[in-house]
């Protein structure tokens, strides 16, 4: 049975190193990661939708001594599957991808993603050239897959199947803009966070 989104975020948090940098894509994945309140330096990728994986790739290339963990939604990844080719080609050893998969655009109201019921982001990643990509459909498999993703060396992807749970837009946009958050992220990075 698929796990809840919050439990997937908690499983990731429990396995991160203190020095790991998280890039978190927009929408329900981002809201779950905020609720997990992890201490890790996190860049909230926000819009443009579909570009978080490329942003994480660029950040990993810029910071080869830090590990970058992308928390990605399946809607964001579906928007731009070709980025898996670029990531597999560059193959930065310090990049990991955890994709939250439930086949719905939760923020938009739960509309289904394109594709058939058998769609597999792990299979697509392997087809793009990822040496390590796995699918986790229950809690035990998720824990095991994340142990491997975050415990082993080298680029990898885990597709974590999560339950469908409504995740509407928050009522409040928050106190800071993306540019202000970006500046704060860069300050913390420069200070060694």
């Amino acid at each position: 049975m698929a796990i809840r989104r919050a439990d997937a975020a908690r499983l990731v948090r429990e396995r991160l190193r203190a020095s790991d940098i998280v890039v978190c894509s927009l929408g329900s994945t981002g809201r779950a990661w905020r609720e997990a309140a992890a201490p890790n330096l996190t860049y909230w990728a926000s819009d443009p939708m579909g570009t978080a994986p490329a942003l994480a790739l660029g950040l990993a290339l810029a910071l080869p001594r830090r590990r970058v963990v992308l928390l990605e939604g399946d809607g964001d990844l579906a928007m731009n599957l070709g980025v898996l080719l670029a990531i597999a080609g560059a193959a930065p050893a310090n990049l990991r991808l955890a994709v939250f998969v439930n086949g719905r655009y939760e923020t938009g109201g739960g509309q289904p993603l394109p594709g058939g019921e058998g769609r597999s982001f792990a299979a697509i990643a392997r087809g793009a050239g990822f040496a390590r990509a796995s699918e986790a459909r229950d809690a035990a498999a998720a824990a095991s897959a994340l142990d491997a993703l975050l415990g082993d060396e080298g680029l990898g992807l885990v597709a974590l199947h999560i339950e469908a749970e409504p995740s509407p837009y928050p009522a409040d946009p928050g106190p800071t803009s993306q540019a202000e958050d970006r500046a704060a992220f860069q300050r913390r990075l420069a200070e060694g966070s």
Binding site: T51, L55, G58, L59, V83
Partner: peptide, 20 residues
């Protein structure tokens, strides 16, 4: 980095810029 679409290239450059 060889990318398959230009908006991926934009994202890669933005990420590299974010990292200094």
């Amino acid at each position: 980095v060889r990318v398959a679409r230009e908006d991926d290239g934009v994202g890669v450059c933005a990420g590299a810029s974010l990292g200094g």
